[in-house]
Design a protein around this nucleic acid. Sequence first.
DNA 1: GTATATGCAAAGGGTTTGCACGGTT
DNA 2: AACCGTGCAAACCCTTTGCATATAC
Lengths: 149, 149
Amino acid sequence: MMSEDWEVRLREHGYRITPQRQLVLEAVEGLRHGTPEEILIEVQRTASGVNLSTIYRTLEVLEDVGLVTHAHIGHGAPTYHAVDEHIHIHLVCDRCRKVLSIPASVAEGFVNSLEKDFGFHTDISHVSVHGRCDDCAGLAPLPGPDDAL
Amino acid sequence: MMSEDWEVRLREHGYRITPQRQLVLEAVEGLRHGTPEEILIEVQRTASGVNLSTIYRTLEVLEDVGLVTHAHIGHGAPTYHAVDEHIHIHLVCDRCRKVLSIPASVAEGFVNSLEKDFGFHTDISHVSVHGRCDDCAGLAPLPGPDDAL
DNA sequence: GTATATGCAAAGGGTTTGCACGGTT
DNA sequence: AACCGTGCAAACCCTTTGCATATAC
């Protein structure tokens, strides 16, 4: 993990090697799941001067060269992952907000149908699946910010 | 479609019947897919004085009583549907932005696995599935706003 | 008449952008 | 030395909120 591959990846795409890019990548790998804001905080533990806009621009670059991906959990900020993570699907409970990560293989049949029947090539890890976790099934919605569906 | 059921639904939940609520519901049904902004424009064709904040508040109410749902397509505004629509899944092409609606039944096996293996009760129509449509598979990303992933 | 809904305007998250400076190549 | 990347601040989009007025009941 975090070999020098990342430098090569960046160079191959015409990008430069900078401390910020290294720090962001390390933060994403360390956090395993992180919003831009969370990544900023992590990065600032080492380099307090780094700006949020740099995080956004850097994540875009890292995603472009295939070092990170992001997924949408509800309508808040997206979360970023390193690509060397196991590909996984997020199950988001709309009641308690818990997020379950499950192996992408569970969706294999589904993904294959989409490919075969609709010619659609799915990036299954990109979007989260919403619903109710076992504990919350059948319960009334929580009060409070019933947002983020 | 658009029987008086909606009035009953609202009353049952202690909400009042207002022209705005009727117009928003009709707009959602007419548009089949609509963001709050699009719904506003549709509503304003009849009642130009209606405000965006009313659209948001009204959609929340209509969703609460089970007359509409929303789904997230990319990281922009969510789209709303009437619940009498067939339940469907959105396949969003990350290259050309095309949105394919497919019957939710395609995901039955997947949904069942989630239930059986993880105790997770899925609302499959809530979030869109991202990837590449047949036309765009294997092509380079589009230039321009390569956003909205 | 009373409580709820609405319009308006302002504030709030999350994200993007223009610009000048600084760093990588 | 040339160009890319960064910090900063302002702008932007989408959504929420406070408050006074209007409306459904």
